[in-house]
Deep mutational scan, measured.
Amino acid sequence: AVSDRLIGRKGVVMEAISPQNSGLVKVDGETWRATSGTVLDVGEEVSVKAIEGVKLVVEKLE
């Protein structure tokens, strides 16, 4: 699937994400809805860990 190529890629949070609410991330110039187990603020760099349906699962870049 086209989304599989995104796993491991870096992105930037465009709309804040929390465990309760999905947000938006931009990866390779495309905007995706994303979820995370932690709070991520706009502008934070993330990496794509998995894909669930049409949402990316991301975590903060260390």
Results as ranks from 00 to 15, higher is better:
residue 5 R to D: 14
residue 40 L to A: 04
residue 36 S to Y: 02
residue 37 G to N: 09
residue 25 V to N: 00
residue 48 V to T: 02
residue 22 S to Q: 09
residue 59 E to S: 11
residue 11 G to K: 00
residue 9 R to I: 04
residue 19 P to Q: 09
residue 58 V to R: 00
residue 19 P to V: 08
residue 61 L to E: 07
residue 32 W to C: 05
residue 26 K to D: 09
residue 62 E to Y: 14
residue 43 G to L: 08
residue 35 T to P: 01
residue 5 R to I: 12
residue 18 S to L: 07
residue 29 G to K: 06
residue 51 I to K: 04
residue 47 S to C: 06
residue 51 I to R: 06
residue 10 K to A: 09
residue 57 V to F: 12
residue 41 D to E: 13
residue 33 R to C: 07
residue 62 E to G: 08
residue 8 G to C: 04
residue 27 V to Y: 02
residue 26 K to Q: 12
residue 28 D to Y: 06
residue 30 E to F: 04
residue 16 A to R: 14
residue 16 A to L: 08
residue 34 A to L: 00
residue 45 E to F: 10
residue 8 G to T: 03
residue 41 D to P: 11
residue 5 R to Q: 15
residue 30 E to A: 05
residue 36 S to P: 02
residue 21 N to S: 12
residue 31 T to L: 14
residue 44 E to G: 04
residue 9 R to M: 15
residue 52 E to A: 08
residue 58 V to F: 01
residue 21 N to A: 12
residue 6 L to F: 06
residue 21 N to R: 13
residue 33 R to V: 15
residue 60 K to Y: 05
residue 46 V to Q: 00
residue 4 D to Y: 02
residue 56 L to G: 01
residue 4 D to E: 12
residue 8 G to Q: 03
residue 30 E to L: 06
residue 32 W to T: 03
residue 19 P to Y: 08
residue 21 N to P: 02
residue 28 D to V: 07
residue 12 V to F: 13
residue 61 L to Y: 12
residue 44 E to W: 13
residue 8 G to S: 04
residue 38 T to G: 14
residue 29 G to S: 10
residue 5 R to S: 15
residue 58 V to H: 00
residue 41 D to T: 13
residue 17 I to S: 02
residue 17 I to E: 02
residue 62 E to W: 12
residue 48 V to N: 00
residue 40 L to R: 02
residue 19 P to F: 08
residue 34 A to G: 05
residue 30 E to V: 04
residue 45 E to N: 13
residue 23 G to R: 01
residue 58 V to I: 03
residue 25 V to W: 00
residue 40 L to E: 02
residue 58 V to M: 03
residue 16 A to I: 11
residue 7 I to Y: 04
residue 25 V to Q: 01
residue 45 E to H: 14
residue 50 A to N: 10
residue 42 V to Q: 10
residue 7 I to F: 04
residue 34 A to E: 01
residue 41 D to A: 12
residue 44 E to H: 08
residue 29 G to W: 09
residue 35 T to I: 10
residue 52 E to S: 10
residue 21 N to C: 15
residue 16 A to E: 09
residue 48 V to A: 02
residue 3 S to H: 11
residue 13 V to D: 00
residue 26 K to G: 10
residue 61 L to G: 07
residue 16 A to T: 14
residue 15 E to R: 05
residue 29 G to E: 10
residue 50 A to P: 01
residue 43 G to D: 10
residue 49 K to F: 05
residue 21 N to I: 13
residue 7 I to K: 05
residue 42 V to D: 07
residue 19 P to R: 06
residue 18 S to M: 07
residue 40 L to T: 03
residue 15 E to D: 08
residue 18 S to A: 11
residue 54 V to Y: 09
residue 33 R to G: 13
residue 37 G to K: 13
residue 45 E to V: 10
residue 24 L to T: 13
residue 5 R to V: 15
residue 32 W to D: 02
residue 31 T to W: 11
residue 42 V to F: 07
residue 10 K to C: 07
residue 5 R to G: 14
residue 32 W to H: 12
residue 36 S to H: 02
residue 3 S to T: 15
residue 10 K to E: 08
residue 11 G to S: 02
residue 21 N to D: 08
residue 11 G to C: 05
residue 46 V to W: 00
residue 43 G to P: 05
residue 24 L to V: 12
residue 56 L to Q: 01
residue 49 K to A: 08
residue 42 V to L: 12
residue 53 G to M: 04
residue 55 K to Q: 14
residue 38 T to M: 14
residue 26 K to H: 12
residue 37 G to R: 12
residue 6 L to G: 02
residue 33 R to Y: 15
residue 57 V to P: 00
residue 13 V to W: 01
residue 61 L to R: 08
residue 43 G to W: 09
residue 15 E to S: 09
residue 2 V to M: 09
residue 38 T to F: 11
residue 59 E to F: 09
residue 25 V to D: 00
residue 40 L to H: 11
residue 50 A to S: 09
residue 54 V to R: 04
residue 38 T to D: 14
residue 43 G to Q: 06
residue 29 G to D: 15
residue 49 K to P: 01
residue 13 V to Y: 00
residue 62 E to K: 14
residue 35 T to C: 05
residue 33 R to E: 15
residue 14 M to Q: 15
residue 29 G to P: 05
residue 6 L to S: 03
residue 30 E to K: 04
residue 40 L to F: 10
residue 34 A to S: 05
residue 22 S to L: 10
residue 6 L to A: 03
residue 23 G to P: 01
residue 12 V to C: 06
residue 23 G to V: 02
residue 59 E to W: 05
residue 60 K to T: 05
residue 52 E to C: 07
residue 18 S to P: 04
residue 21 N to L: 14
residue 3 S to I: 11
residue 11 G to Y: 00
residue 3 S to D: 15
residue 53 G to E: 07
residue 13 V to N: 00
residue 49 K to I: 11
residue 3 S to F: 04
residue 9 R to L: 15
residue 34 A to R: 00
residue 36 S to D: 01
residue 58 V to E: 00
residue 39 V to E: 10
residue 27 V to Q: 01
residue 52 E to G: 04
residue 53 G to R: 03
residue 11 G to M: 02
residue 47 S to Q: 12
residue 37 G to A: 13
residue 23 G to Y: 07
residue 54 V to P: 11
residue 53 G to V: 04
residue 52 E to N: 08
residue 47 S to T: 13
residue 25 V to T: 03
residue 42 V to W: 04
residue 34 A to K: 00
residue 48 V to W: 00
residue 57 V to Y: 10
residue 51 I to W: 06
residue 50 A to T: 06
residue 55 K to D: 15
residue 17 I to C: 05
residue 8 G to I: 02
residue 17 I to V: 09
residue 9 R to Q: 14
residue 18 S to K: 09
residue 16 A to M: 13
residue 16 A to W: 09
residue 6 L to Y: 05
residue 42 V to T: 08
residue 31 T to Y: 15
residue 39 V to A: 11
residue 9 R to G: 04
residue 53 G to A: 05
residue 24 L to M: 12
residue 48 V to C: 04
residue 55 K to W: 09
residue 60 K to I: 05
residue 21 N to F: 12
residue 4 D to N: 08
residue 15 E to F: 06
residue 34 A to F: 02
residue 59 E to G: 08
residue 31 T to D: 15
residue 60 K to D: 03
residue 9 R to T: 06
residue 54 V to T: 14
residue 43 G to A: 10
residue 25 V to H: 00
residue 43 G to M: 12
residue 28 D to P: 01
residue 8 G to M: 03
residue 59 E to K: 06
residue 55 K to V: 14
residue 4 D to R: 04
residue 10 K to Q: 11
residue 27 V to W: 02
residue 44 E to K: 05
residue 12 V to G: 02
residue 38 T to A: 13
residue 12 V to R: 10
residue 41 D to K: 13
residue 22 S to C: 06
residue 43 G to F: 09
residue 25 V to R: 00
residue 54 V to D: 15
residue 31 T to M: 12
residue 24 L to R: 07
residue 32 W to K: 04
residue 62 E to H: 15
residue 23 G to E: 00
residue 23 G to H: 01
residue 29 G to C: 06
residue 39 V to I: 13
residue 19 P to L: 06
residue 54 V to I: 10
residue 12 V to S: 08
residue 52 E to H: 10
residue 32 W to E: 02
residue 11 G to Q: 00
residue 22 S to V: 12
residue 41 D to S: 11
residue 45 E to Q: 11
residue 2 V to N: 11
residue 55 K to F: 15
residue 11 G to V: 03
residue 52 E to Y: 08
residue 48 V to I: 11
residue 39 V to H: 15
residue 42 V to K: 10
residue 2 V to R: 04
residue 40 L to C: 05
residue 21 N to W: 13
residue 40 L to M: 06
residue 47 S to D: 05
residue 12 V to L: 13
residue 15 E to G: 09
residue 52 E to T: 09
residue 5 R to T: 15
residue 32 W to L: 06
residue 54 V to C: 08
residue 46 V to N: 00
residue 8 G to E: 03
residue 24 L to P: 01
residue 8 G to W: 02
residue 29 G to A: 09
residue 25 V to A: 08
residue 7 I to D: 02
residue 47 S to M: 11
residue 6 L to D: 02
residue 13 V to L: 03
residue 56 L to V: 09
residue 43 G to V: 02
residue 31 T to P: 06
residue 13 V to T: 05
residue 40 L to Q: 06
residue 39 V to K: 15
residue 13 V to M: 03
residue 36 S to G: 06
residue 31 T to R: 07
residue 56 L to N: 00
residue 3 S to G: 12
residue 29 G to H: 12
residue 58 V to S: 01
residue 57 V to Q: 06
residue 56 L to A: 03
residue 49 K to T: 12
residue 24 L to E: 07
residue 47 S to R: 15
residue 1 A to M: 10
residue 26 K to P: 00
residue 53 G to Y: 04
residue 28 D to E: 14
residue 18 S to Y: 11
residue 44 E to M: 10
residue 18 S to N: 12
residue 25 V to I: 07
residue 33 R to D: 15
residue 19 P to A: 09
residue 21 N to Y: 13
residue 54 V to K: 06
residue 31 T to Q: 10
residue 23 G to C: 02
residue 27 V to C: 04
residue 36 S to N: 02
residue 38 T to C: 05
residue 61 L to Q: 08
residue 47 S to H: 14
residue 19 P to D: 09
residue 28 D to I: 06
residue 56 L to M: 07
residue 4 D to T: 09
residue 2 V to F: 03
residue 42 V to Y: 07
residue 2 V to A: 11
residue 46 V to H: 01
residue 1 A to I: 13
residue 58 V to G: 01
residue 48 V to E: 00
residue 32 W to A: 04
residue 48 V to H: 00
residue 7 I to G: 02
residue 17 I to P: 02
residue 34 A to Y: 02
residue 14 M to D: 05
residue 15 E to I: 06
residue 17 I to A: 02
residue 15 E to H: 07
residue 49 K to Y: 06
residue 61 L to D: 09
residue 19 P to E: 07
residue 21 N to M: 13
residue 44 E to L: 12
residue 26 K to T: 12
residue 20 Q to C: 10
residue 12 V to T: 12
residue 1 A to Y: 04
residue 34 A to H: 00
residue 38 T to Y: 09
residue 5 R to H: 12
residue 31 T to G: 06
residue 6 L to C: 03
residue 37 G to I: 11
residue 7 I to M: 08
residue 14 M to G: 04
residue 2 V to S: 12
residue 18 S to V: 12
residue 2 V to G: 13
residue 10 K to T: 11
residue 16 A to F: 09
residue 23 G to K: 00
